[in-house]
Design a protein around this nucleic acid. Sequence first.
DNA 1: AAAGTTAATTAAAACGATTTAAATTTTGAA
DNA 2: TTCAAAATTTAAATCGTTTTAATTAACTTT
Lengths: 337, 337
Amino acid sequence: MSRIHVTLKDIARVAGVSTATASLALAGDPRVNVKTKRLVEEVAKRLNYVPNEIGRSLRAKKAETIAFIFPNSPHFAFTHPYFSQLLEGISEVLVENSFHLMLSVAPSEANESAAYDKILRNRRADGIILWPASIRDRNIMKIVESGFPVVYLGRWHHEEIATVEREDIGGAYKATDHLLKQGRKRIVHLSGPQEYQVSIDRLEGYKRALQEHKVLLDPAFVMEKDFSMEGGAEAVKELLASGMRFDAIFSANDRMAIGAMKELQESGIRIPEEVAIVGYDNIEMAAMMSPGLTTIDQPMKEIGRLAAAKMMAMLSEEDVGELRTVVPARLIIRGTA
Amino acid sequence: MSRIHVTLKDIARVAGVSTATASLALAGDPRVNVKTKRLVEEVAKRLNYVPNEIGRSLRAKKAETIAFIFPNSPHFAFTHPYFSQLLEGISEVLVENSFHLMLSVAPSEANESAAYDKILRNRRADGIILWPASIRDRNIMKIVESGFPVVYLGRWHHEEIATVEREDIGGAYKATDHLLKQGRKRIVHLSGPQEYQVSIDRLEGYKRALQEHKVLLDPAFVMEKDFSMEGGAEAVKELLASGMRFDAIFSANDRMAIGAMKELQESGIRIPEEVAIVGYDNIEMAAMMSPGLTTIDQPMKEIGRLAAAKMMAMLSEEDVGELRTVVPARLIIRGTA
DNA sequence: AAAGTTAATTAAAACGATTTAAATTTTGAA
DNA sequence: TTCAAAATTTAAATCGTTTTAATTAACTTT
């Protein structure tokens, strides 16, 4: 029941010095006498002193905390299968630097702006790592323009901001290219909502690959869904109902790909013989499907680490290096294509 | 670039009152004159005042923050498929109460103790929601005994601590009972590491069901693995190699169940005709398997909400209600059993 | 009009640390 | 011994808020 906290004042009193000396001693300031320093350290250790970070923060005007913000609806953010990997990477670097991680979810679209504002100004966090919101989200712009240290986890249209980006256009290109090289010509693209930059970019990569291979883009082959398994299944139902012929699917994420796969298998369509599939994300489930889902892997944990490291550099005003970091995508070939 | 912060002092100066009055006015204290109150509010709004929570915390000795701690190795915690649901539930309640969420991962076994200690004493968080660690973890005990407000997300052996628990024994009983009622007698249990309470409890539920149905427990049928898909696959390999006959598997989690399923299917064993399977957790992947995995569902988001709500009650010294809350498990019947 | 209430405001202390500038002690040289 | 310089130590201010106790102003009562 050690609810009474040992403060610096206690240390000073016991050691018989002023709080100033105690503070300086513990900070390792060369001005304090070595003997005094030892004494203070000994007392601090004996009394089990843990500095109150709130007090320290107030004075230092630093919180030693970074906020990880999801502008999306909480549900959407948390159900991202790779969300936890991202968090793991960020977390690791922060722990190494004795920083705290604050998780921040915009409660609702309505008070989103106010929520950001608060984090931005109440000084609870020194910097923000931002997950891409809808490209229509004006709040993001506000955060970025505030001059607050920000690392954005996606592609940003202006030069001045630090980002760690996935190679979405390139990844989509690799996926589509892989299908084309197998002689597939009628490739359906299951796209995510076009209000997200990733969806736009993955569609772009798909288009570029088609162009490269001189395959004409059929607009009816691009189906915009919502990244869910149900969405993938739905798309296949629509395709089958329409009677359109297709020999491959490139899905903008694994979950839609898996939904599509399931629907195809239930309709007795053989994968990959009749329809080849490539997904995106390489979630754990992908390897467990029969046949295994060919997909694009992105090292999300590494992205988290890079983002956090970049933030640390920004805060310590070290050299941040390249403002934009692009993490390459990798094609994982399994059974579906 | 609004990096200069508006403080209460600024508000007071502009409104022509003392900081004390400004503070009182904004806090809605009845002592301040209505006109003054309106004036201060107007100024605060106009200058876009956001109170500095660090200053407030220092004075109030409250951080308006709760920490969510994983005593396990970070990797283990984050790869829990339902980790994000838990987080979502906690997050929702905290946002409703204007609390912040601090995520805390013990960097390594070695400095685990120091890490907890720090959170406990540096007053960055007002309370801790604790994910179950190994039952051998002494640090947990220390946190709990410190008298710090704690909500433990599992079964605790002492009376005095607030918990939100899953119905593990009951859930395992339901799963095993379901298999027994289908006439399965040779039921293998894929257990998790016995250093975790959930593993112990799920094994216990399995045993109780067997006993209830007067089926003798064969110790060779209890296989301790590590909760991974690889572990599940491995278990099946061992079983097949040993030549032991078995007609069902009750796995302590879905991931092992899926690994086992995959291995069985690759060996040409029909599910559920030859071997029935019941998993545990109802992860998203479970529904996507062919056949769909029968499993036990636990509303992890709800558990998160309950835990956070309990913490809020503890901090505001309201009636916490039952100290122990047990959330019932539900059998989801799909194709594997 | 004096005394007593009540209402409204504010000065000042407090939270727990850091840091600057000033004060004190120690040291070394003359 | 004396004094300046160097080495230590400390008083006090500061960060931004809240809260207590004191003060002032306004209003009632006799």
